[in-house]
Simulated scan of single mutants.
Amino acid sequence: MNESVTEESYTAQVRRLAELTERVQAQRTEAHTWHDQQCAAARKAVADAEDQVHRAERNLAAARELQDRVDAEATALWQELRNRLGQVGRRVGPPPGPVAGAVGDPPVLLAAVRDLLARAGQPGELPGSVNPLLALCGVAGALVAYALGTVARAAGDRYGGDLAVGLPVLALVVILLGPLVGLVPAKVVADRRHALLGPRPAAIVLVAGLATTVLLLTLAP
């Protein structure tokens, strides 16, 4: 025989059912919230990972481009060095490869090498040890000019006429230009030493040539 349900027990059961329903709804809401948070975190992690992959790909491409540029410039600088060394440079071989543990920014290091090669390629001043050779160039130039002047004067005396008037004048001009003639061999000396024929070396040549010209004119009959 079924027991009758009292009003008080029915109310308690309804209240309990409502509490359970509310608790289940809260747990369901919490579960949905947690699920949404996890999905959002996963999507953010995927987006961050994709961004890192793209950034790594860009960095890799830039690094490869820099490597190719550095290799090309290093090869060009090495070839320039070999050309500067001449016969010795042909035995140097290919450019060296990367050194393990090397530090420094490659573009900065290459710029320093370019600057060093540029400064090494610029002609310098002639050393003082070549001063006697420069003076000899001046003396030789004056002697050559004097010899040409003497030949021209002799030709004027020999053929007479207008030549007897014009050639002595020409001979005098040639003799007076004698100190300048010495600058020609002096320039050859400077070029072979990869140096500049500056004011000091030129002055030595001109003074020696002028002194020789004056001496020759003084001793001339």
Rank of each mutant, 00 (worst) to 15 (best):
G124I: 03
L176C: 15
L85F: 05
A31V: 09
L117C: 03
L116N: 13
K187V: 10
V113H: 02
E7T: 02
H194W: 08
L17W: 01
E73M: 06
V184K: 03
L167Q: 05
W34D: 11
K187C: 09
L126K: 00
R91M: 11
E65R: 15
L215R: 11
L133V: 08
P107E: 13
R16S: 09
H194R: 13
D36T: 06
L176R: 11
A31M: 07
A56W: 02
L163E: 03
H194L: 04
P98I: 12
Q27A: 05
G161D: 03
A47F: 13
G141K: 01
V92N: 10
L116A: 14
T33R: 10
A102M: 11
L109D: 15
Y146G: 00
V53R: 08
G149H: 09
K187E: 13
G161S: 06
P98C: 04
D191E: 11
R153K: 10
A56F: 01
E57V: 12
V24M: 05
G101V: 10
R193C: 02
A18F: 03
V99N: 04
Q122W: 12
V144Q: 00
A74K: 03
A202S: 13
V214Y: 06
Q13P: 00
V88L: 08
R200L: 08
A12K: 09
V181P: 02
A31N: 07
I175T: 15
V207Q: 04
G104Y: 11
L219T: 15
T11V: 05
A203Y: 05
V70P: 00
R90I: 06
C39W: 14
T212A: 14
H54W: 05
H194G: 01
A62K: 06
H194V: 05
A147T: 12
T29P: 02
L216K: 14
R82F: 04
A112L: 13
G166S: 12
G198P: 00
E7D: 06
L116M: 08
L176Y: 14
L180C: 14
G121N: 12
L109G: 12
L77F: 02
G124Q: 02
V99A: 09
E50A: 05
V70L: 01
A118G: 07
L134C: 02
V144K: 00
Q27E: 14
P95S: 08
P199V: 15
Y10A: 08
V113S: 06
V88P: 06
L60P: 11
R91Y: 08
G101M: 03
G86A: 03
S4N: 01
G166T: 15
E8W: 01
T218D: 09
A45P: 07
C137H: 02
N59A: 12
V189N: 11
D51I: 01
G101C: 06
R43L: 13
V188N: 06
R43Q: 14
G209W: 09
L215V: 11
K44W: 12
G93M: 09
L172V: 15
P106L: 08
A155N: 07
A164V: 05
G121P: 03
P127N: 01
L206Y: 04
V173H: 09
T213E: 05
A111L: 09
K187L: 14
E73A: 06
V99C: 11
G104D: 14
L117M: 09
A49R: 13
G104V: 10
P94C: 00
T33H: 10
G93Q: 12
A42G: 11
E3R: 05
A40F: 04
E22L: 08
A18E: 15
